[in-house]
């Protein structure tokens, strides 16, 4: 077991009205449990605003959850200050959606890559060691090695995303969180990156938490899919099961949209009650009931 999160809750408060007199509360992540095993890629799928990015940021401790526990690689990382969790955090990296904004335009590629070593400065203490590692990673993501003194704006979207992936790999992390990492790319590039990710996984023994709104993208690299809706995981099953026997109405809607480009007419509004839990429907197919 690489990562286990339990009962994670996170609400955001919003002040509205001229003087902020009305407070409203949005439950971004509502009582979520999730287990990720070593080597088992999980796709986290849901529409924008369903809380999937918030969940990813909570796992990385970029946000603090309101309650619940996160156990990563045997360490409870939901407690303690952000700075103290250095060891856990170097094994957990993230690739962001937009390759045009995830690289600082004023940094050349060498600076970008150097920044990836921040948490491993002790081990990678000389420049030549780091250089070697950078070159190794570059060849793994099919980038040429003579780009170190160039700037992000000189690269295409696909190349930038490769650079971002390379940056997240230099410390040999165990878990890589990909937040819509291919959504803003062209289909051809999308496919290349997805294939690259599949290769890297074998090479570096990585586990992915792949966040996307598109089931079809996730299908290619994930063994399991968790469907998220309005802050809750509504269905969790192996990829094949999700595609062949979707149980939850929302999963069906997602599937229709991704595969057949067809929208399901809103027949019934999906409502939650407090006592709903993920229940095993057999063969590890969980459904929120």
């Amino acid at each position: 077991m690489l990562l286990e999160i339990k009962n994670i809750k996170k609400s955001f408060y919003q002040k509205t009205g001229v003087f902020g007199e009305n407070k409203s509360c949005v439950k971004a992540v509502d009582n979520v449990d999730l287990v990720i095993n070593q080597g088992e890629n999980i796709g986290l799928v849901g529409e924008s605003g369903c809380g999937k990015t918030t969940l990813a940021r909570i796992i990385l401790r970029l946000l603090k959850s309101d309650s619940g526990s996160i156990n990563f690689d045997g360490v409870d990382i939901s407690q303690g200050s952000f700075g103290k969790l250095k060891h856990a955090r170097r094994n957990m990296q993230m690739v962001f959606q937009d390759p045009y904004s995830s690289l600082d335009p004023r940094f050349n590629i060498e600076n970008v890559m150097e920044e990836g070593f921040t948490l491993g400065k002790k081990e990678w203490n000389t420049k030549s060691k780091r250089r070697e590692k950078i070159f190794e990673t570059f060849s793994a993501v099919n980038l040429s090695t003579d780009i170190l003194d160039r700037y992000p704006h000189e690269f295409s979207g696909g190349e930038r995303q490769r650079i971002a992936i390379a940056r997240s790999l230099v410390l040999n992390p165990k878990l890589l969180i990909l937040d819509e990492a291919v959504s803003s790319l062209d289909v051809i590039i999308q496919k290349q990156i997805v294939e690259l990710l599949a290769d890297l996984r074998k090479k570096y023994d990585l586990t992915y938490l792949f966040i996307s709104h598109n089931l079809k993208v996730v299908q290619r690299i994930c063994q399991k899919i968790a469907v998220m809706y309005k802050g809750k995981i509504v269905e969790l099953a192996s990829t094949d099961d999700i595609f062949s026997y979707p149980l939850h109405p929302y999963t069906k809607e997602l599937l229709a949209a991704a595969v057949e480009y067809r929208s399901v007419k809103d027949n019934a509004k999906i409502e939650f009650t407090d006592d709903m839990r993920l229940i095993d429907m057999g063969k590890g197919h969980f459904l929120l009931k």
Partner: peptide
């Protein structure tokens, strides 16, 4: 709010 700031945070930059 830029992603490269988040990326730096994830990388553990102070």
């Amino acid at each position: 709010e830029r992603e490269y700031v988040l990326a730096a945070k994830v990388a553990g930059v102070s």
